[in-house]
Design a binder for these strands. Structure first.
Length: 491
RNA sequence: CGGGGCGUAGCUCAGCCUGGUAGAGCGCCGGCUUUGGGAGCCGGGGGCCGGAGGUUCGAAUCCUCUCGCCCCGACCA
């Protein structure tokens, strides 16, 4: 009781967080905790929101020069755009712009998992070694696994994956087949002590991953679940503006019978893949994933040839003739059906309808969330910088005030900024006074927001601003009202 | 883990071969002038030259060890 009280006192220490926040946000009338602030000064939150998304205030440390040690373009651009900062080989801090993109991707993944009937959990980062001894993987996994000891010298590990843990959860709580099927997922940081981290966040040691685990009574049920997840993956990547091609894949150390990798074609990809030219035009979003039988969808989408190097079948590929393409690919998702590989040794069994106890049929389904940030940039950039697909862009629109301090420019830009925010459009306003137009344009192109509104002295004299579409570079002059209407319409 | 490369100012780098006590550009701070694609001039601050040991009158520079980072290969969401 006493001890707890003392630790609370620490949080209220008078020289604590408050002074630091004053640099960034309007002074909050902080009394005994942030929760009380709103009651005393209801306008605080709105003012804070209005202040933060201005570049004069926003924490965006962009770089003009390419930092040494970043070889792939996505890594270079992420560093230059102030999204991340490297801390150690394969370990990064995520700065505000990067964190926003990560959250956008996470949100899409979460929505599609929920839509597919999965339930979100959050498993502990640290796992006891004993759990892994049960499945036999503690010895097998090798030095990629970060092994640690607690103060009692108990062996622990920092989770590289969570099959054992989820199987443990399942066996604690599920007894009968009536509770099946179930798919549990989490979006959690993982650590794998890679021999050689590289490609920035695409192959880090610490990475954010969505991992789902399915539990079914029998093989037929497990196959249905696998198909449902397969379709959910097509939709998930399509929503991010990506064409992720499902390819037959090896099961690797996770083991099992069936597996597909979802691959994005990119010159900087880590592995060689082979597929039919038709995949380049594939449109997964067109599918009505909820209506159609998943088995039929999977059948249709796996009919066209696509294979990783390991699974490549030259004989079958030869039949494609000119339609065969060989490219490099980035793996952004991987799904496995592995049956009873973990449930049998770990004794995760359910009562079947006939009264017998059977080990549950399992599968696992990964999406590399942090890797996707890099992968999307690999797939979508130009010489000036990143070109974000709209669904994952950190902001929808950037306002460039070319002549801050000019009365008309300021009022037009401020008005646009306020009204876009009121309309719920995510907007970043470059209101910096110390930067010249060239630097502002360069920064805005670099961070790759889909739309730019350029407010300059020449334009506002004639009552117009310039709307620029980042992807094509097209610009068009129009009144602020027209620009507003364009930017607020649903995309 | 094998092979190769690099650690010098906040960032990008020169200086190292041929030892003589540290430089440039950009950024940062102050001032003036500027304002439609990373401005100009003037002034200023900033570096135990990754770390330890050794050779030498003297080491960023030569030698040994060590730590870190990057690239190629084998492995991985």
């Amino acid at each position: 009781m006493l001890r707890r009280r003392r630790s609370l006192e620490r949080w209220r220490h008078p020289t604590g967080v408050r002074e630091n926040m004053g640099n960034v946000l309007p002074a909050a009338p902080l009394a005994t905790g942030a929760g009380f602030a709103y009651g005393r000064d209801p306008g605080w939150f709105e003012r804070a929101k209005g202040a933060v998304m201005r570049l004069s205030n926003y924490f965006l440390p962009t770089l003009k020069e390419t930092p040494a040690g970043a070889d792939v373009v996505s890594h270079q651009l992420m560093l230059r755009a102030g999204m991340i900062e490297q801390i150690s080989s394969g370990i990064y801090n995520w700065l505000p712009l990067g964190a926003r993109v990560l959250r956008k991707i996470e949100a899409i993944v979460r929505e599609e998992q929920d839509r597919a009937g999965c339930q979100e959990v959050l498993l502990s980062l640290i796992q006891p070694a004993d759990l892994w001894r049960e499945s036999g993987r503690y010895e097998d996994y090798g030095r990629e696994m970060l092994r640690i000891q607690d103060r009692h010298e108990r062996e622990m590990l920092f989770g590289p994956t969570n099959e054992e843990q989820i199987t443990d959860v399942f066996r604690h709580h599920v007894r009968g087949y009536r509770e099946l099927p179930k798919v549990l997922y989490q979006i959690q940081w993982k650590f794998r002590d890679e021999v050689r981290p590289r490609f920035g966040v695409m192959r880090g040691r610490e990475f954010l991953m969505k991992d789902a685990y399915s539990f079914d009574l029998d093989k037929e049920g497990a196959q249905r679940t696998y198909n449902r997840m397969f379709v959910a993956y097509l939709r998930t990547f399509a929503r991010m503006g990506l064409t992720a091609i499902p390819m037959r894949a090896e099961t690797g150390p996770i083991g099992g019978d069936q597996s597909h990798e979802f691959i994005i074609l990119a010159d900087t990809g880590e592995s060689v893949v082979y597929c039919h030219r038709d995949w380049l035009e594939a449109d997964f979003l067109a599918e009505d994933a909820d209506a159609e039988d998943p088995a039929a969808l999977v059948e249709r989408w796996t009919r066209t040839y696509a294979a990783t190097e390991d699974m490549h079948d030259p004989a079958r590929a030869d039949e494609l003739g000119d339609a065969l393409i060989e490219r490099r690919g980035i793996e952004v998702g991987h799904i496995f059906y592995f049956g009873t590989k973990y449930s049998a040794p770990m004794n995760a069994r359910v009562n079947a309808p006939d009264g017998s106890k059977v080990p549950v049929e399992m599968g696992s389904y990964g999406i590399g969330v942090s890797r996707l940030v890099g992968a999307i940039i690999e797939a979508s950039h130009d010489d000036s910088g990143i070109v974000w697909p709209e669904p994952v862009a950190p902001f929808h629109v950037g306002i460039v005030n070319i002549k801050t301090g000019d009365e008309t420019c300021d009022s037009v830009a401020e008005d646009l900024y306020r009204r876009l925010q009121e309309a719920g459009v995510e907007v970043l306003y470059d209101d910096r006074t110390e930067e010249r137009p060239g630097a502002k344009f360069a920064d805005m192109d670099l961070i790759g927001l889909p739309w730019q509104v350029v407010v300059g002295p020449k334009g506002v004299q004639n009552g117009v601003v310039e709307l620029k579409y980042r992807r094509t570079g097209e610009r068009e002059e129009m009144t602020p009202e027209t620009a507003l209407a364009r930017l607020c319409r649903p995309c």
